[in-house]
């Protein structure tokens, strides 16, 4: 009887082990993700087998090649009330010899279709989705080697906007400790805002005649920040139009401050490059904004109010895929 019990116990344990090893963690269905969180903007990925890992090219015929990219807007821009400027963005493919891999109509870039790329929202929790397809062919005549191993590089450059409205404390008497207050001036840590540039923290400091806000921002994405007006310089070939230039060092790490308001009062901000750009150093930067006492002198006690910040920037991300092209000759 005891022996049988031991047998059952062992069998039970083994079965339990098998069941556990086969289990995967279930995502909580009820936990709806906030629409304005995350550090992604628009992301691109090569569609499986587009391009293929390897191609076999015979010496007689052109071999078709297709580079297809999934384009997903994982961030919160554009919101329903915002102007959608994503069509200023473009996807470029490069990294290969254009005489060997010839794209149809020499088409090496595509404009982002803003209609399909709405931001993440409560009604569209996955964000917008689109595909970009580059079709062409591999020319065997130009392939003088048996094996050609280029890396297909896809570069996406697009404009994006970060918006945050954290609650800050406006205290007309910051040094009065005796009064009971609903809030205290200090620092506020912020969560991500559904964009690659994140406002990470707001430090507040009050003096007798103004309140200062230090807005700390960070590039939390995997790409590069570029001046929003320099998106056209992203072209890796740099030769499509006469006015095109390539990106220079000074075009990087510039985030345009569009708006910083407390309630209806506009904040005065600095230091700003060219009067509007916040500079990033090693992916991080800040701007100091101040609110004059005149804006809240009628108020006698501390109160909380949203600080509305809007940042605009260009963003560049790149993905790559190595491919192998082998040339075979026919038996004849």
């Amino acid at each position: 009887m005891v022996k049988r019990k031991v047998k059952f116990e062992i069998l039970f344990l083994v079965l339990l082990l098998i069941i556990i090893s086969g289990c995967s963690k279930l995502g909580g269905q009820g936990s709806a993700k906030g629409s304005e969180t995350g550090t992604d903007g628009i992301i691109i990925n090569f569609l499986e087998n587009n391009p293929q890992d390897s191609y076999l090219v015979s010496s007689e015929d052109d071999e078709p090649i297709s580079v297809t990219l999934e384009v997903r807007n994982k961030g919160s821009y554009p919101r329903s009330e915002e102007v959608n400027e994503l069509s200023r963005g473009k996807i470029y493919i490069s990294g290969f010899d254009r005489d060997i891999i010839r794209m149809d109509d020499n088409d090496l870039s595509q404009i982002l279709r803003n209609d399909y790329l709405s931001g993440v929202s409560n009604i569209n929790p996955e964000g917008g989705f689109d595909t970009a397809e580059f079709k062409g062919f591999i020319s065997p005549d130009e392939l003088v080697v048996d094996k050609y191993e280029p890396t297909i590089l896809a570069t996406l450059c697009y404009p994006y906007v970060t918006k945050a409205s954290p609650t800050v404390c406006i205290d007309p008497s910051p040094f009065d400790d005796k009064q009971k207050k609903v809030c205290k001036i200090g620092s506020t840590q912020l969560s991500s805002q559904g964009a690659p540039i994140t406002i990470t923290r707001i430090d507040q400091e009050a003096s007798s005649n103004k309140i200062q806000f230090k807005l700390n921002i960070k590039n939390d994405g995997n790409g590069d920040v570029i001046r929003v007006n320099d998106l056209k310089k992203c072209n890796p070939y740099g030769d499509t139009s006469s006015d095109s230039e390539t990106l220079k060092r000074k075009d990087f790490d510039r985030v345009e401050l569009i708006r910083a308001t407390v309630g209806f009062s506009e904040l005065e901000c600095g230091p700003l490059d060219e009067g509007r750009f916040i500079r990033l150093f090693n992916g991080e930067g800040y701007v100091l904004c101040s609110l004059d006492r005149a804006s809240f002198e009628e108020v006698k006690s501390a109160y909380t109010t949203p600080l509305n910040v809007e940042l605009k920037y260009g963003y560049r991300s790149t993905i790559s895929k190595p491919i192998k092209i082998s040339k075979i000759s026919s038996i004849s």
Binding site: D97, Y237, D239
Partner: peptide, 13 residues
């Protein structure tokens, strides 16, 4: 080769 052109892989024979 034009300086504006980005890096690319070319067949060398």
């Amino acid at each position: 080769i034009d300086r504006k052109q980005d890096a690319y892989t070319a067949p060398l024979q």
